[in-house]
Amino acid sequence: MIKDITIGQYFPGKSVIHRLDPRMKLLLTTLYIVMLFVADGFLGLAAGFIFLLFAFFISRIPLTLMIKSIKPIIPIMIFTGILNILFIDTGTVLFEWWAVKITTGGLKTSAFMIIRIICLICGTSLLTYTTSPIMLTDAIERVLSPLKKIKLPVHELAMMMTIALRFIPTLIEETDKIMSAQKARGADFETGSLINRAKALVPVLIPLFVSAFRRAEELALAMECRCYHGGEGRTRMKQLSLGVNDYAALGITVAFLVLVIVVNIFTVI
């Protein structure tokens, strides 16, 4: 149940997408998001969607994983869809009753929004599926490094992010374990009123916090024992470098972005 959360869940592989420089992947994902927001018609969105399918296909991520990543945002999608249907009253009226008015414009916009959300989530999930969290924070650190000039502790922020990401699976596992242990003692998390269920979480949360603090202390001690003293003068084991693949991927993405802009201009005319 709790293990189904896919945030930051890396799906190991050796595809071209997996091997791209993480900085480039960050940039490409940004461009892709821009692409989705620049598109103001179904045609532009279709271009973005094709780009996604293309990237998804060469990454060899199983379709079930992608569907799994959409699942948690279904409520948001339904909410946006309904809001758009109800509050946009352009186009021809299809149905009217009391204050509810459904129009072709509303339906169109809500379909457009839902597709856009799906594309957004799938695209960004593709980034986290194909990039290990360590690589990702590494890339973020490198991308943000110019901000060191204005005294922003970039390295420390990246280290905090790495540690946080690194401990998500550990904490999830721990939660699972503690829940199992309390279930074995007859705790019940699935039935009862909302208040009772919230109360039932106390025997899980307290041990979880205690162990999180214990882990933090142990980790800090271990880091200090290995002479960790911040980012100054630190070298890396894996140097990031941009290769032919990266530039090719950038080229293709920019081409798609241009395509979307061109499509926009033509549909306006």
Partner: peptide, 27 residues
């Protein structure tokens, strides 16, 4: 689960109550 009691590995990490008495009383 009441019939088959299971003590996990490192069970001390599941303690949560204010007193030992209350913790044993949980089950």
């Amino acid at each position: 689960r009441c019939k088959v009691g299971l003590v996990f590995q490192y069970p001390e990490y599941q303690l949560f109550e204010e007193t030992v008495y209350k913790d044993i009383a949980f089950g």
